[in-house]
């Protein structure tokens, strides 16, 4: 049980009994989080490294970037000239304009910095996920401790998790096996987060369904649904400690879409029933209602995908929410809203 290739090691000393204040006794050293995170191979054997997923720049992207830069440069030059001309002709208007331009520049720089920081945080979360995944797949004391230390640091400043973290710290000594410790953290800290995330997904999916059913214009509800989904993903990422910016949210959505495309077949088993039943049955009643249900389910799917993709640890013992659980939430919300609408007669 000690590993596939037992290394020869020095024999352990013989048994003995010490007094509690013996100088040989040492306090447990804090687990080295960063070392373990940096060196943890991911589940498929690759070492996790920043930017490895990004392929080289392609010609199309190059052209796009060049064009964008040209336009931006043109705009910048134009602005500078305009302001210069204004200062020369009417300094009273020119100088405030220059000030506004400087403000714009500063704001843009700030935004960019925030995006970069958000991406870095998301990256840290991803790194933590990789460590956690390997810790769950092959439970060893050091990777588990590194994961737990990382998780504790991630949530250290969160007021809403202080209680949960306190409970976890109180119970940590209950478990001696690495996997049990991870499961304990999951049960005490992540499961409450899961519950909140699933609530958010259900709410969002329900709202999308209602909105699609009631909205008079297809184009509008498409835009609104897209925006809602983006907001949902952000909300979930914030909940789990990712705090992504816009670019981060888009990156997460991209990951989710890819994973849905890849696992679509697998999830069909519980998804299709809900979709065809819900959509089909609702579709009989009204085409809009059917569309509403399908749209709601899509939002639910994206939300659940967001949970799996930003949760800092894979599900150990807790049961992940499934699409089937969402179907009922959507249906309840729909029937509630529709009956309300019927009563007020605004349908």
């Amino acid at each position: 049980m000690t590993g596939p290739t037992p290394k020869p090691r020095p024999p352990k000393p013989g048994p003995r009994v010490l007094a509690p204040d013996d100088p040989a006794i040492v306090a447990a050293p804090p687990p080295r989080e960063d070392a373990a995170v940096a060196e943890t191979p991911t589940a498929d054997g690759h070492r996790f490294a920043k930017g490895q997923t990004r392929s080289g720049l392609r010609l199309g992207a190059l052209a796009l970037i060049a064009a964008g830069s040209l336009i931006l440069a043109g705009l910048a030059v134009d602005t500078v000239w305009t302001i210069e001309a204004m200062i020369a002709r009417a300094p009273l208007i020119g100088w405030p304009m220059a000030g506004l331009a400087a403000l714009l520049l500063a704001a843009l720089a700030g935004l960019a910095a925030r995006e970069v920081a958000a991406l870095a945080r998301l990256d840290r979360l991803t790194g933590l996920q990789a460590t956690a995944r390997s810790a769950v797949a092959t439970p060893a004391a050091d990777t588990a401790e590194a994961t737990l230390a990382g998780l504790e640091r991630l949530y250290a400043g969160r007021a809403d998790l202080a209680w949960a973290l306190g409970r976890y710290r109180e119970r940590r000594e209950d478990a001696v096996d690495p996997l049990d410790r991870l499961a304990l953290f999951e049960a005490e800290v992540l499961v409450p987060l899961d519950r909140r995330a699933v609530d958010a997904v259900a709410k969002s999916a329900g709202t999308t369904a209602v909105f699609t059913t009631l909205s008079p214009f297809v184009a509008v509800d498409m835009v609104v649904t897209g925006w809602r989904n983006l907001r949902l993903v952000r909300e979930i990422a914030v909940l789990y400690g990712g705090r992504p910016g816009l670019a981060g949210a888009v990156a997460v959505i991209r990951r989710i879409v890819v994973s849905i495309a890849l696992t679509g077949g697998l999830e069909a088993s519980d998804g299709v029933i809900g979709q065809t039943l819900g959509g089909g049955l609702a579709g009989r009643v009204s085409a809009r209602l059917g569309q509403g249900v399908v749209n709601g389910l899509l939002t639910a799917r994206i939300g659940l995908g967001a949970i799996t993709s930003v949760r800092p640890m894979p599900f150990v013992r807790a049961r992940p929410a499934r699409l089937a659980d969402m179907g009922r939430a959507i249906a309840e919300r729909l029937s509630l809203r529709l009956s309300a609408a019927e009563r007020t007669g605004d349908r």
Binding site: K12, P13, G14, P15, V17, L18, P20, D22, I25
Partner: peptide
């Protein structure tokens, strides 16, 4: 080495024991 802290059965004294491997 990982040791155990506990109270001995005989006299209830607190000790740290390394039972060997």
């Amino acid at each position: 080495v990982e040791c155990l802290t506990g109270h001995t059965l005989a006299d209830g004294r607190e000790v740290v024991a390394w039972p060997g491997e």
